[in-house]
Design a protein around this nucleic acid. Structure first.
Lengths: 110, 110
DNA sequence: CAGGAATATTCTTTCATTGGAATATACAAG
DNA sequence: CTTGTATATTCCAATGAAAGAATATTCCTG
């Protein structure tokens, strides 16, 4: 998880991830569109790959990078226990549970 | 966004955020429970506060830190454009759209 | 198998981050 | 207004990440 967040905490890597929403791209295109030197692009992509945020497909001497759901899903799942902090659905659920507790308490008195 | 991910890319800060799921805690307790020196705990908490991942309430000489929904919600929203990569609901929606496109094409032929 | 194209790796320098130790600040109690 | 408690701040050393330049690797083409 730390590796994932670390990968996402660099401006250029965040731009790469965002760019790849358009679809798979070779390293050269990524470098060009983001005004990066080719070695920097390669290095950033490798960091993203280790974090499972991108995956790569070899096409001849090209490397086609695309988004990898695994890393992004990991972020989603990490967020899960915190979702109740802002998600209205959990507030409703909490109320339902509170009501059940009240009813349970009521049962005991009877 | 980068500040948020950077804040979450440190092991001890991640442990602090996780610990605060139990509820608000003063700095001393956080430091003790995570075996951190008090200054380190303070420093990490300040980083988390700048990223709006925690908020603080002063109670006498104590500082009560709690989770701040803002930073976590920011992560949730950043994730939004990527959700279709793994969320089955988007797959269904994509199918519905594909069907609509097919029907539209059909209309043109008639 | 020589040449060229696309990408990866290595090396170096620079800059930011982390932890530890010491110290400073804020506040409550007496 | 002094003391004790809780937290923040500063300084320093060590570690790690990022960019740039140069070079190496891989693979297609002829």
């Amino acid at each position: 998880m730390i590796e994932t967040f670390a990968a996402l905490s660099d401006p250029n890597r965040l731009r790469i991830v965002s760019l790849l929403r358009e679809g798979p791209q070779p390293v050269g295109t990524i470098a060009e569109r983001l005004s990066l030197n080719q070695p920097q692009a390669s290095k950033h992509l490798i960091v993203l790959k280790k974090a499972r945020l991108v995956e790569v497909e070899a096409r001849a001497q090209q490397r086609l990078y695309r988004l990898d759901p695994a890393g992004l899903m990991a972020v989603h799942e990490w967020l899960e226990p915190y979702r109740r902090l802002w998600d209205a659905r959990f507030t409703q659920m909490d109320e339902v549970i509170a009501q059940m507790v009240r009813e349970e308490t009521q049962d005991r008195k009877e």
